[in-house]
């Protein structure tokens, strides 16, 4: 057997997370090209049954222990380090998620393996592993060659087809012991989003505002448009960070993942973290004054007009159409 491709499994509330399927799909391709194997690492409490859902892996290493019931980066790092010491791997795939945030850099510092962040593509050309990362808010791609075909990669969600990594083929399952690790950072509790607001994940039409809305005083205009369209108002991160809308309205990596019939993006440039949360909308219309804004790579229709002017014009037009029947 050649090089091992290690995948850190992410799971949530008893189900394998979508990013895991994506990583397994990428790992299978890499293993094929490098004549290696896919090795999944699964940590948690009462997680052993999940191993059977990791079909694309040749082997699943499981740490199933109450100590792993709550998130601990220190435990995860210790497990990965111990695993690498016992069974050296060529490539380690981590999810580009908040759950796995920071693991790659820290593991790189400890193992001296190169870490490549924001990977949206991994391939092997003439025996060399080449990663493509999306940088600068999605405006630039960078190709990185791993000279020894060894490294730690953080996979951006949505980059690979999770379907290809799905499956229930039984894998070889082996237990791994709890390593010693520092317990300085202690998980206390999960905080669910505040109830009471509308659930934007259940809306058929979302009017979503970004930095281009300029000021909180312009939000009523967007709300008016959302009402005219019989939809709801959502936002990208900068708007929520300004305190103009609650977290329950945030679309993207840390916020909600939405799949409305219409996603009208107003003054949103389309940072990868935002696209992650709305890429599966049926119809995406983007309004942004920057013709090179990454949102236009995903949108079906676009216009480079000032979004405030468009909001007023579209509200009026939609109301006229509805009134005219």
């Amino acid at each position: 057997m050649g090089a091992a491709i290690l995948v850190l499994v992410e799971h949530h509330r008893g189900a394998i997370a979508g990013i895991t399927g994506e990583m397994l799909a990428a790992a299978r391709d890499l293993a094929r090209a490098l004549h290696g194997s896919v090795e999944a690492v699964l940590l948690g409490c009462d997680v052993a049954p999940l191993a059977s859902r990791l079909g694309p892996a040749d082997r699943v290493w499981v740490l199933d222990d109450p100590i792993a019931a709550t998130p601990s980066a220190e435990l995860t790092l210790a497990v990965l380090q111990a695993q690498l010491a016992r069974h050296p791997a060529a490539i380690i795939l981590l999810g580009g998620t908040n759950v796995s945030f920071g693991l790659g850099a820290r593991l790189s510092a400890r193992t001296h393996l190169p870490f490549v962040n924001f990977c949206q593509n991994v391939r092997v050309e003439a025996g060399t592993v080449i990663c493509t990362s999306r940088l600068f808010g999605g405006k630039i791609l960078a190709d990185v060659h791993l000279p020894t075909s060894q490294g730690i990669l953080s996979i951006t969600p949505g980059s690979f087809s999770a379907v290809a990594g799905d499956g229930e083929t039984p894998s070889v399952v082996e237990s791994i012991p709890v390593p010693s690790y520092p317990t300085a950072v202690v998980f206390k509790r999960l905080i669910e989003p505040a109830a009471g607001d509308i659930d934007i994940t259940k809306q058929a039409i979302l009017v979503s505002v970004g930095r281009g809305i300029q000021d909180a005083s312009n939000l009523p205009l967007a709300e008016e448009l959302a009402r005219a369209l019989r939809g709801a108002l959502s936002a990208s991160r900068p708007v929520v960070d300004q305190g103009w809308l609650p977290l329950t309205r945030q679309v993207g990596k840390s916020g909600m993942t939405v799949k409305p019939k219409l996603y009208l993006a107003l003054g949103i440039s389309g940072a990868p973290e935002h696209l992650e949360g709305m890429k599966d909308a049926t119809l995406i219309v983007a309004i942004n004054t920057d013709p090179k804004a990454p949102i236009f790579d995903l949108a079906h229709f676009g216009a480079t007009v000032d979004c405030l002017e468009l909001i007023e014009a579209l509200s009026a037009t939609v109301r006229e159409r509805i009134a005219a029947g």
């Binding site: 080449i130 999306r134 790579d297 079906h300």
Partner: peptide, 20 residues
């Protein structure tokens, strides 16, 4: 730490149909 061999703008595939 990383050898970047190429930086480039994302290819304009699947761009939105623009309305003027």
């Amino acid at each position: 730490a990383l050898p970047v061999t190429r930086m480039y703008k994302p290819p304009a595939t699947g761009r939105a149909q623009m309305i003027d």
